[in-house]
Amino acid sequence: MVMAETNVVRADGIFQPVLPKGDVVDMAKKRREPDAEKAKFACRDVRVFYGASEALHGIDMEIANSGVTALIGPSGCGKSTFLRVFNRMNDTIPNARVTGDILMDGEDIYGKKVDPVLLRARVGMVFQKPNPFPKSIYDNVAYGPRIHGLAVSNSELDYIVEKSLKRAGLWDEVKDRLKESGTGLSGGQQQRLVIARAIAVSPEVILMDEPASALDPIATAKLEELIDELKEKYCILIVTHSMAQAARVSQRTAFFHLGDLVEYDDTQSIFTNPKDQRTQDYITGRTG
C-alpha cells in the first residue's frame, strides 16, 4: 500500500506520519532497525490477581521488537489477562492487581513515573468485539489524535485519518461516507476501523484480543492480511483461540495453560515440534 506524499507532513516531531513511505519511512525504519532483534517487552514473574485469586502465576517472557507474537491456549488460561498487562488495561478493573516487572524498552511500565494514559497511546489495543464509538467514521479515527494533540490543523488531522484508514485497508470502502456513523459498518469493517483508530495514535505496539472472533471467514482473511502488513511497522501481540490463525499470522507463539506460560517458541517449532505434552495435547485437539 503506497501512501501519496502530502505536504502536511511536519518534521518537528509532534506529528510523525503514520506508517509513512519514502523518506519518512526510512526515518521510521532507522529508529527501529538497530534494535530489531532486541526485546520490546521483558516480563519477569508477572502475576495478576483478581481480588484474592491469582489468574496468572508468574510469567517470564520476552516479546520481540517486531513481528507478530501469538498467545494461544484454552479459554480461561489467562492469555487475555496477560495481554491487558501490556497497556495496563487491568488498571481499569476494580480489584485487579499486577505484580512483577514488565519492561518496555527497558523501562518498567508499572513504574511510579509512568502515566498509564500515555502508555496506552504507545501501546494500542484492538478488542474481541469491534467497538467503534457511536460517532462518524472520521471522528472515530480522529478521536485519538485529537486527545493527544497530534495534529495542529484540520488538514493535518484529515491527513492522519486518511493515512490510518488507508493503512487499515478501509479507505476505499469508506472514503465517500466519512461522516456516517462508524456503527453502521459491517463487523469486519468495524474491526478494521478500530485498527485504523489505534494506528492513528502512532503506537509502537498493537495488542489484539481475539480480533477475528466476531468476524466471518472472509472478513477474517482480510484482517489477517492486514496484520501481516502491519507487522512490518509494529510490534503486534495477538491473542487467538484459533491455532490455524496463530500459525498463519504469527512468527512466535506462546502457549498458556491455567495461568502458566507452558511453552514459547517460534511458531513453526510450536506447531511442528511441541516440547511440552500439554502443548501437544492442545494443538492436536486433545484438550481445549
Partner: peptide, 19 residues
C-alpha cells in the same frame, strides 16, 4: 529508552500534565 516515541516527547509530557 532507545526508542523515542512521539508520546514521550517533551511536548507530549507537558500536554499530559495539562490533561
Amino acid at each position: 529508552s532507545a526508542f523515542e516515541s512521539i508520546h514521550q516527547s517533551d511536548r507530549a509530557v507537558k500536554r499530559m500534565t495539562r490533561r
